[in-house]
Design a binder for these strands. Structure first.
Lengths: 247, 247
DNA sequence: CGAGGTCTTGAAGACGATCAACAAACGTGG
DNA sequence: CCACGTTTGTTGATCGTCTTCAAGACCTCG
């Protein structure tokens, strides 16, 4: 279940943006040339650390990454899971200081896009600017949906919701196979994402399994009963804003 | 504890943006002229409803408003509380379809900024565009901090954190008086915000009171022990990105 | 002055955390 | 290729935070 991200480092981002609104050849060209440098990170390495003021933004080309905040007592909360094509810290372009870290959940390949180039895009390419802005707005929309889950859904609903969401997001970038996808997160990481203990994540996963909603072997999750999972999750994909429309 | 928002409808937004980066006279002029129409809403009215596709964005001029999502079973989750100067659905400019509603928590006065004008700004005023983008990024940053609270903080910590956050945000727009501010939310609304039951909100508020951290008479909250509250909240204002820097 | 909304209090129960221990899987070096 | 150590997954028991249900006090505003 490996996919070709294409030779062009910007390919996955272009694909993701074009899902929402077609790009002109010129815009594609600008994006394709925006990656100044490719870097690789190993598991548990920070792509960017809290407190940094990077002068480039990080485009995730391959692998899974997570935004997280550490608490005073050593626990942590993952606030977002990122997949290839996600511009994981585009916000540092304007926010400057990272108020959270971004860690590699699997080995990651990233493209560094200098803020200078992003600034140039905002000066010269308004439509492309709107699409990059859009991509941060979708991040925000996902945050809001997570907030609903954390505040009002049970552990079971939250887990089911996350699986539905990741399935769709991975489908967009061609990283699903039928009803299956690779989910290389440990149960501890899922707990940090959903605000649950590792033990409880384990029990919830088993509940989803015995309910016949999913199978989960190794790192491969298969959705066995889509409708059932959607119902448990109370899942509505509207928050992903997958529609293709002029922006 | 009333404040003058100035005669200019864009004044509170200009003030909020200038907090982060100075605006040119031309930019201020553009913003001041961006409000096409002023509207008033009563308590519990939707400024914007889920499912709508507004052709303008809503700038909150006066009053408190909340973004919320309703669940299938009738409960709701408030994902953000908004105060004057907040561009409450700037994201609808690019997201188009509202995937959540925005409700007036108090009587509200709003300015409607046509998407057409926002588009014009993105075409002609790159720096102003970046500042508007920034304002949505700060929304996202606040969402992430809320996520940390919902996932990992106790009810007491969450409540304390919310009070610290609102104090600072209200201070920026001149709506605090010493250590006091008006907080016109019911305990039920606070519960919907923090993911708690009304009953528990009540108990937590009393705990903060008896600990001598705050007083809360009528709708006026006074922080009696700033350090203590910050400690209980584990509060770090970095996520508000209040620094003034070139963007 | 009355009525509905808001706040407050008590009691019982549920969901998920914590603690502890063990099993299984993985990866690394010999 | 196997041995071993470490990480990840699994299970059980107990505990605590927060929910739910219920009822009464307060208060605000027509």
């Amino acid at each position: 279940m490996q996919m070709e991200t294409g030779n062009n480092p910007g390919a996955s981002l272009i694909r993701k943006l074009e899902q929402r609104d077609p790009l002109s050849d010129e815009e594609k060209h600008v994006l394709a040339n925006s990656v100044a440098r490719i870097r690789e990170f190993g598991v548990d390495e920070d792509l960017v650390s809290e407190g940094e003021r990077p002068n480039y933004s990080t485009l995730l080309l391959e692998g899974f990454a997570a935004r997280y905040k550490d608490l005073a007592d050593g626990r942590r909360q993952i606030t977002a899971i990122h997949v290839p094509g996600d511009f994981v810290d585009l916000h540092s372009f304007l926010l400057h200081r990272m108020d959270h870290g971004i860690v590699a959940l699997t080995p990651c390949r990233i493209g560094a896009v200098p803020h200078e180039i992003l600034r140039h895009i905002t000066e010269r390419h308004p439509h492309l600017t709107r699409l990059l802005w859009l991509s941060t707005l979708i991040d925000g929309s996902i945050h809001r949906e997570s907030l609903v889950g954390m505040g009002r859904r049970t552990a079971l609903g939250r887990m089911a919701h996350l699986l539905c969401e990741l399935f769709l997001r991975l489908q967009v970038i061609g990283q699903t196979e039928g009803d299956s996808f690779r989910l290389p997160l440990t149960q501890a990481e899922l707990g940090d994402t959903l605000g649950l203990s590792t033990v409880h994540v384990n029990r919830i996963v088993q509940e989803l399994r015995t309910a016949g909603l999913i199978t989960w072997r190794g790192q491969v999750v298969t959705i066995e009963n889509r409708e059932g999972l959607v119902e448990v999750a109370d899942f509505d994909p509207a928050f992903l804003h997958l529609e293709n429309e002029p922006r």
